[in-house]
Structure formats: structure tokens, C-alpha cells
Simulated assay, not measured.
Amino acid sequence: MSMSSNSTSKTDPVSDVQSLRKIIHVDMDAFYASVEQRDDISLRGLPVIVGGQPNGRGVVAACSYEARKFGIHSAMPSAEAGRRCPHAMFVKPRFEVYKQVSQQIHTVFREFTDQIEPLSLDEAYLDVTSNTLFAGSAYRLAREIKTLIHERTGLVASAGVSYNKFLAKIASDYKKPDGLFCILPAEGETFVASLEIGRFHGVGKVTEARMHDLGILTGGDLRQWSEAELAHEFGKSSRYYYQVARGIDDRPVRVSRIRKSMGSERTFGDNLHERTEMLDILVTLLDDLIDQLAAKSLSSKTVTVKVRFADFSTFTRAHTQHKGLLDKGSAHRALPFLLDRALSLGQESGMQRHGRVGRRSGVRLLGVAFSGLAPLGEDSPIQLEMRW
């Protein structure tokens, strides 16, 4: 295969296939941690962990490449990260700063295309099919975007270029950090065939393990399965797996991504045992989410309560309003019922609950989420009838 890497290229074979799209996936390298190292020179070259302190109950939000060498990754408990790397520098996240930097990055994107699909503060797809700069070269355009981001923010981005979103995302991760990689249309199927199944976007740890049990270790193995066989094993995801195994992904770059859910969680330094205290916290989380929905002119059909016990066992209970949308009063009335049902599941799993959760267990995290979001006015909120 003759795939492009970090070396300079005078031509861009992707642009030679005019009938195909040209997609760039840009992903900032260790974004939160890199911002902290940029703003505090004493952190440069050191293992930096953004998130909770190692003596607390928080988790790792992000970490530098120096920290990743110790097996540290996002969502890992901070205490575990501290054990793995005792000399790591723990830094509280500064989300307002990260948002400001993200705006600078998106300003660069908009200089080249308005077809931008943001995935997070530090990641986005760009459709540059119609771009005529650099003689229509998507590869050279991606290199220019990387250069401008570094000049304006002092941060490093990786970029992947290909003819669909699936391959562009894989390409951006292929040469990290500071990567620039191109998967050409003629090379897509061959590249996917040699790719380990765990590197497929959309294949998580659980699915990867299941595929390994079925003898699916690479894209080539996945391609041997018919769509019907995949449907039997993986249900509605089968179509996606069948297509990407062949280098096919027709998903468009969505300029306005529809948000499907919105949630909020709180982890406690000391486990909670009183139901009334839990309910008060859930009400606070709910009210904050309702304000966020109103600010975005959204409403919801489903409210979910999440309870995580001290042993990390987690239970969720949800209610969906099938006709109309939930109003504020209905959502509030649902909370105690959903909390009790989640606590009951914990009780059935060996937890004790008699007005209080057993002292040896307790609750370490509570969360509330809204899903089935829709624009206000699309459907009228109605009163929720409780049938528990």
C-alpha cells in the first residue's frame, strides 16, 4: 500500500477521484492536558492528569502522552491513576478555557469550509469536497489546517483524510500524535482488511471481545460474514459492520447535529445513605438540566435516574412518555419513583435498604438524564400519568 503519512506530498490522489467525497477528521492531541502544559511551562514533559485528585473520588478527564505510558486513560478513577504514576501532576479541569481554545480551532475550520460536524470540543469532521484551494487537494488542506491551529493556539492536532467518515477517523488516529495520514479510495478495502477489529470506530471493548470469541480479529475476518449472519449476532449494528468492512460509509457530514440526550452526574466524597438526601441532589441535577433544555429550546420524552453504589454496581431506571413530551412537573414527580426502583435493584443484588442504604454500601454517584430530545413546539408537553 502507498498511503501518505507525515511526509510532504505534491499531489493528492483523493482529489483525482472527483466522484468521491473528500473528508477530513481533525482530532486535537491530548487536548485538555496539552492546554495545561501550554499555559504552565512547569508541566511540560511531565505526566499530566486533568481531573479529580488521587486522594478523592474523581476520575481522569484527560491525560498527557507522558501519563499514557503508565497505562492511564480517561474515565479511570483518579486514585488508580495515582497508584500507577505517583509522580503525576494532577490538574483541575478548566472547561471555560478549553471552550475558548475550541472556538479558535473552529475559526480555522470555517476559513476552509462551512461543512463542519463537531463531535466534541477537540474533534470534528470537515467535508471539503467542494474546496478548490491547493488545487482541490484535501491532504494539503489538512496540513494547512494543522499548521494554522498550531500557530494560533500553540497546540498540535492530528488529521485523517479519506473518502468517508469511518476511514477519515481511523486515519487521524493512525499516526498520532501530530499525525497526518491519508487513505486513498483505491486502498480503502485493503486497509480495512488488515485493521485490528478493536481499532474500528463503533466497536467497543465488549463488542471487540464478542467478535474475538467469534473468530473476528481483523476487518478481513469481518468481511467474511454475511449481513444476515452479522444481524443474528449484532442486531441493528450489523448493517454498519457489513459496510465498513468493505470501506463503505455513506454517512454525511452533519452541519447541525441533533443532540439525542443530555445528562448530569455527581460523585460524592463520602457515600450517601439517606434517601431524602439523594432525592434532594437529584432534584438539583434535574432543575439544572431543565434550565439547559430551555436554553436550547428543547424538550424530552424520557427521564432516567442513575445510581452507582460503593462497589461500582450501577443501576438505572427510566420512564418514557409515549404521547407528547414531559413537562417540568411530570419530571419532578417521576424522580422519587425512579430512585426507589433503582435502590430496589440494589437491594435485590444484596444491598440493604430500609429507609437507609446499608452503611457498608452507600451510594457514590447519582445522575439524571433526559433523552428523546425534540425542539420545543414540535410536540406539546402533557401531564405524566404514573403507573408504577
Rank of each mutant, 00 (worst) to 15 (best):
Y242F: 15
S226E: 07
S256A: 14
Q243H: 14
E229P: 00
E208T: 12
S256Y: 12
D221W: 04
L217K: 13
G204P: 07
G215R: 05
W225F: 15
G204S: 07
G235L: 10
L214V: 00
L222P: 03
L214G: 00
L230A: 08
V203N: 07
G219M: 04
I248A: 02
A228G: 04
R254K: 14
R210L: 08
A209R: 15
L217F: 13
G220N: 04
K260G: 02
E208Y: 03
L217M: 12
E229T: 08
L230E: 06
I258G: 00
D250E: 13
G215H: 04
Y240N: 08
V206H: 09
V206N: 08
Y240V: 03
S237M: 12
I216M: 03
D250G: 09
A231S: 10
F234Y: 10
E208R: 15
Y241G: 05
D250H: 14
L217I: 02
W225R: 10
M211R: 02
F234W: 08
Y242L: 02
V253T: 01
K205V: 09
A231T: 13
G220F: 03
D249R: 11
S238A: 15
A231Q: 12
G219K: 07
E208G: 02
R254A: 13
S238Y: 06
R254L: 15
